[in-house]
Simulated assay, not measured.
Amino acid sequence: MQPSEALWDEDYRYYTRIWAQEEAVAMEVGIRELRDNLDRYLAEVRSGRMLTVTDHGQAIARMVPVDRLIRLERLRRKVRIQPARTGKQSAPEPIHGNGIVGEFIDAQRR
């Protein structure tokens, strides 16, 4: 097994365990129910449960305890990912040409 494969396998087992734990403590609640019983659901989140807010059955938001790291934060702490070093670059100027795109591509291939 290559070192990169071992790291991937280790991460896969770790995150599979974390996702299973998240699913075990996750709750779904509609917007109206959340609004009507906000204090109760905030208490659930404080106790460590993750809350998914739905609108007509579609998930639209997730509430998690502040001390619980999301996947992105866990990856940053394990130094698996880093923020981009440069800002987003603008798109290049479009190329204006005469003729059909297919003809242009054929000419480039010759």
Rank of each mutant, 00 (worst) to 15 (best):
G102R: 07
R71C: 03
S90R: 11
R68Y: 06
T86P: 07
E33I: 04
T16K: 15
R85S: 08
Q89K: 15
V29Q: 03
P92E: 07
R46D: 06
V25A: 06
I60T: 03
M50T: 02
E93Q: 11
I105H: 03
E93T: 10
L7W: 08
G48I: 01
G30Q: 04
R17C: 07
Y14R: 09
D39F: 13
I100L: 14
P65W: 02
R32F: 03
T16A: 14
S4Q: 13
H96A: 12
L34F: 09
V45N: 05
L38A: 05
E5K: 08
M27T: 06
R32M: 04
Q89I: 14
P83C: 06
R13Y: 13
L34S: 00
R40L: 13
M63F: 15
E73W: 01
R46W: 05
R68V: 09
G97S: 07
D106P: 01
D9T: 13
G102N: 11
A6P: 02
R49P: 00
R13W: 13
A43P: 01
R80W: 06
W19Q: 15
D9M: 09
D55E: 14
I70G: 12
Y15M: 13
R77W: 02
Q108F: 10
I81F: 03
R35E: 12
M1R: 08
R77A: 05
G97V: 03
I105E: 06
K78E: 12
R32Y: 03
L72A: 09
P83A: 12
R85W: 03
D11P: 00
G87V: 02
W8S: 04
R109L: 00
Q89T: 15
A20C: 08
P92R: 10
P94E: 04
R17H: 14
I70D: 15
E103D: 15
H96P: 01
V64Q: 04
S4Y: 13
A20D: 14
P83H: 11
Q89N: 11
R35Q: 10
R17I: 07
L69Y: 02
D67T: 13
V101P: 07
N98R: 12
R46T: 04
E33Y: 00
R17T: 13
Q108W: 09
V79L: 13
K78G: 05
R32Q: 10
M63A: 14
N98D: 10
I81S: 01
D55H: 05
V66P: 02
I105S: 04
L42G: 08
I31K: 14
R17K: 15
